[in-house]
Amino acid sequence: MRKEDLDALLIMSFGGPESQEEVMPFLRRVVAGRGVPDERLEKVAEQYRYFDGISPINAVNRDLQARLATDAPSRWLGDRVYLGNRNSEPFLADTLAEMSKAGIRSAAVFVTSAFSSYSGCRQYRENLAAGLDKAGVDIDLRLVPKFHDHPLLAQIWIDRLAEVLPSDQSTRVLFVTHSVPVSDSVKYRPQHEALAARVIQGAAEMADMAEPPDWRMAYQSRSGPPHQPWLEPDIGEVVAEAAADGVQRIIVVPIGFLSDNLEIRWDLDVTAGAIAKEHALDYVRIEPPQNDPRFISMIYELIEQGDGIPCRVGCCPNPRQELHTVGERADD
């Protein structure tokens, strides 16, 4: 994408509640159209209420928005960096209407998800198309490509892991990401495994270790009907397994996430942390990479390198129905 062809940058994210009153409306929006009863949502709501109904993700993304505006190379965007969410304020359609009113006619779109999957890619592109329709505006939205294999993303993880690797204790590294249905994992799982292998090797070299430490992939935040297969093993099972194997120290790397969010805090800090404590394990959880200054540089590199149409038609298909999207091309 040529910078001179872009009027603005739009950050698109999942969103989250910021008060107790927002929790249930937020969760209903997350599962809209799936027939999930409030009784099931109430169980999830307990996790949010544990943290006073506040997800950290909105504050983290507002900080990203401010840093992108401040640190933009050559100040080519100035303050024209916008934030729109799928499930909470500022809602995407409202942001698009605001952008149109400000005279924005073309914008790069950075989705806060590095990996390819329906929920992490195509669903956001469906949301963008629906947001344009709802707002009744015409903005040329050009998507930043997926970046799970970008060297800067890997290097941030490598640096953060290397800082805590040296230890006299028996250590196992657990790379964790959000579980998805097995049917949606054809590209999703190998992308995570490739990044994890790159990070563990790089961190071991940086920490002057003769060989990389033992490591595992684990998954968290499984949802959906019980009969539907999702990626396993669960992080809790892997923590307990480490204790049974005589491991003394575990390092948890939430490699599937870019920023702090409620799922990390609940599934990793509260639930997995409690299992580690029960088994007298030393438990270390690495911070995600979005707050690193290099993350800003990576976004602008991706904008310059991408053509705005990163996906082919039919990739990461919608499991329920086909919907209009933006940012896809027919196969060559």
Rank of each mutant, 00 (worst) to 15 (best):
H148L: 03
H324P: 12
L268D: 06
A8P: 09
A207Q: 10
P145F: 01
D52V: 13
I250E: 12
A59R: 11
Y48W: 07
T171D: 05
V326K: 11
D140N: 13
A243R: 09
H148I: 05
P166R: 06
N61I: 06
V111W: 08
A130E: 15
K3F: 15
A107Y: 02
W215Y: 14
G120H: 11
S170Y: 04
A108E: 03
C121V: 04
T95A: 02
P310D: 01
L174D: 09
P73R: 06
D307L: 00
G53D: 05
Q248F: 02
I235P: 08
D260L: 02
A218I: 07
P166Q: 05
K43Y: 15
Q65V: 03
S297T: 15
A218T: 13
E18I: 11
D7R: 08
A243K: 09
T95M: 00
A45F: 14
Y82P: 06
F26I: 06
L302M: 00
S179C: 04
P225C: 03
R160T: 10
A162N: 11
G136T: 06
L302R: 00
E205R: 14
I251R: 10
D140M: 06
E205T: 12
P288D: 02
N61C: 03
A203V: 05
Q191R: 04
V252L: 09
F147E: 03
V137W: 10
E98F: 02
Q47I: 15
E211Q: 14
S88N: 05
E232I: 10
V137A: 07
E211M: 08
S19C: 09
V144K: 01
M206H: 13
T70D: 15
L27E: 05
A330P: 06
H227T: 13
W157Q: 04
H178R: 12
R28K: 15
L77W: 07
R249Q: 13
L9I: 12
N87Y: 08
L96P: 08
E304I: 08
N61V: 04
H150P: 04
V31H: 08
A45M: 11
S297N: 15
A72S: 15
I255Y: 04
S183K: 12
P37G: 04
L174V: 11
G136E: 09
D63Y: 03
I54E: 01
E211A: 15
Q169A: 11
V186G: 10
D71W: 09
G308L: 03
P226I: 02
H324D: 14
I156G: 07
D214R: 14
H279W: 12
R125S: 10
G308V: 01
P145H: 01
R67L: 00
A207E: 07
L268E: 01
I158T: 14
G308Y: 07
